[in-house]
């Protein structure tokens, strides 16, 4: 009995955490119809990810399984599901919210740490090769304008984005 009660409070807490985050607001509307899963190109290809299950697990309060697992990182953000969900669950956005929470807790896949580093250092997430940059005039392209990386850093200092790497370091 006591255990059951405790379990309930953690569930409560996790769905509250999700609904109070940008993107996660609609998760509790889910009634498990499976439209999202059937719409999801990824779920069709690999058993490692099923959006319906991610939502179910989250609503059941399986926080660790959701946040440290690899499923949430397998969504390709195609929004096929979100268009069709009859309960207007914003599934792709919910998954962003879950990723954001995972990041806050220090669960960041390597490639995402690299994205973050590129963005903080260069203001872009895909680096530009010197080779192509030099070749632009030959191709008839104007030279590239400077990137507003300083402005971005000022933004990051407010949103805390610049601390993402540290969090990762602390967690590991």
């Amino acid at each position: 009995m006591k255990q059951g009660k405790e379990e309930k409070t953690t569930n409560q807490a996790f769905s509250d955490v999700i609904t109070s985050r940008l993107g996660g607001e609609t998760i509790t509307l889910c009634y498990q119809c499976g439209t999202c899963a059937s719409s999801c190109p990824v779920a069709r290809i690999t058993p490692r990810f099923n959006p319906r299950e991610v939502i179910k697990l989250s609503l059941l309060g399986e926080k660790d399984e959701v946040l440290s697992g690899d499923a949430i990182w397998l969504c390709c953000s195609c929004y096929n599901c979100q268009e069709r969900c009859p309960q207007k669950v914003e599934i792709a956005d919910v998954i962003y919210a879950l990723r954001n929470i995972a990041v806050k807790e220090g669960n960041i896949p390597n490639i995402y740490s690299e994205f973050a580093a590129e963005l903080i250092n260069e203001g872009r997430i895909v680096p530009i090769s010197k080779f192509l940059e030099k070749k632009r005039p030959d191709l008839g392209l104007p030279s590239l304008k400077p990137v507003g990386v300083d402005a971005l850093r000022k933004i990051f200092s407010i949103t805390g984005f610049d601390k993402i790497k540290q969090e990762k370091a602390e967690a590991s």
């Binding site: 962003y96 919210a97 954001n100 995402y112 994205f115 997430i125 304008k145 990137v147 507003g148 949103t159």
Partner: peptide
Amino acid sequence: LANMTCCAPPPVQSLDLET
């Protein structure tokens, strides 16, 4: 235009939607 940056596509949104 000068000073444009990354558009903040899904990989950035995945890290932090607000950013």
